[in-house]
Simulated scan of single mutants.
Amino acid sequence: MYLGRYRFTLIAQDEINLPPFIGSILRGGFGYSLKRLVCIIKRRGCSGCILEEKCAYRLIFETSPTVETPKFMGISQLPRPFVLKIPFDPKARRTRIGRGEAFTFQLILIGRAIDLLPHIIVSLSRLARMGLGRDKGRAVLHSVHAVGLGEERLVYDGMRERLFDPPEPISSDRIVSSFSLPDPHRVTINYLTPTRIKVRGDLVFPIRFHHLIKSLLHRISMLSYLHCGQIPDLDYVGLMRAAEKVEMIGEGQRWLELSRYSSRQRTKMFVGGAIGRTSYRSDEDLSDFCPLLALGEWINAGKLTTMGLGSFEVIR
């Protein structure tokens, strides 16, 4: 797997009032703006469009199986090749951004989606100018930085509207090699945004270690195959058997309910999940799980990761 991480910095031109978690607004606006930018056929849906195999919007927002990925034929919900990383304060009731203030978020791109960074920058710049939230508070995209492992580089200067060559994508091997656990028998996870993991169709709470590992195995496998053309070398059966022996200690998780408005379904939807710190312990060495945890910090876990849910960090 190969990834790119980009920090977008916007400057508010108006006062902007948003919900406490802005991931849904950003994701919805991003999709709307990108489709307006790249769609020249102006069809209502992507299915059957003569350009669907080469369309930037379809690749990012309407991921579908192709003749190159036949094993996923018949699966309706395939993981999209991007993840939003949104600053989030669970105690906040609103997000207020004053005129002239800067606010940032990160976007993780996976595999082929990295080549579409210029399209994404233009679409998010247009979204900012159109306005965010119910009051349509306007902003300008000030800059975009590629954020690597201990380094960053400017890839877009919004004041001069100039793009710069981005650095090479970051390989999963580099991410994994920079990761380690301070205690090989204990790991503490901080669920930063509501994390929604389903088992046999039902949301689980609290999230036990094997729930998290199963979600990461699923996401890493599908993202690698669909968007990077790679099949990861993972011992699925062995890892799951080992994960089921890991104990959860402490009760730091809590359920946080969020709501969002779905334009497609024209209704309010509830998208709660688990947040907070949880420690897991095992008599066995947990180092075999390091590759999954390292990548999971980048790609999130569970459902609705494209709007920023499922973000977690390993406390080190």
Rank of each mutant, 00 (worst) to 15 (best):
I25D: 02
I25P: 02
L26M: 14
L26F: 11
L26P: 00
R27F: 05
G28W: 08
G28R: 06
G28S: 08
G29Q: 05
F30H: 03
F30A: 03
F30M: 08
F30E: 00
G31H: 05
Y32M: 10
Y32Q: 11
S33D: 07
S33L: 01
S33W: 05
L34M: 14
L34F: 06
L34E: 01
L34T: 03
K35L: 01
K35P: 00
R36K: 13
L37S: 07
L37V: 11
L37I: 12
V38Y: 11
C39A: 10
C39M: 09
C39S: 06
C39Y: 03
I40R: 15
I40K: 12
I40G: 05
K42P: 02
R43N: 05
R44C: 00
C46H: 02
G48N: 08
G48V: 05
C49P: 00
C49K: 00
I50S: 02
I50L: 04
I50G: 00
L51G: 03
L51D: 03
E52A: 06
E52C: 01
E52D: 08
E52F: 08
E53G: 02
E53Q: 13
E53H: 10
C55V: 06
A56S: 14
A56G: 10
R58G: 00
R58K: 13
R58H: 05
L59A: 06
I60S: 03
I60K: 00
I60N: 00
F61Q: 03
E62Q: 13
E62K: 07
T63I: 12
S64T: 15
P65M: 15
P65G: 13
T66I: 15
T66G: 11
V67I: 15
V67Q: 12
E68N: 13
E68W: 14
E68T: 12
E68P: 10
P70G: 12
P70F: 14
P70R: 11
K71F: 15
G74H: 11
G74M: 10
G74I: 08
I75P: 12
I75C: 15
I75Y: 15
S76T: 15
Q77C: 11
L78M: 14
P79D: 15
P79H: 13
P79C: 09
P79V: 09
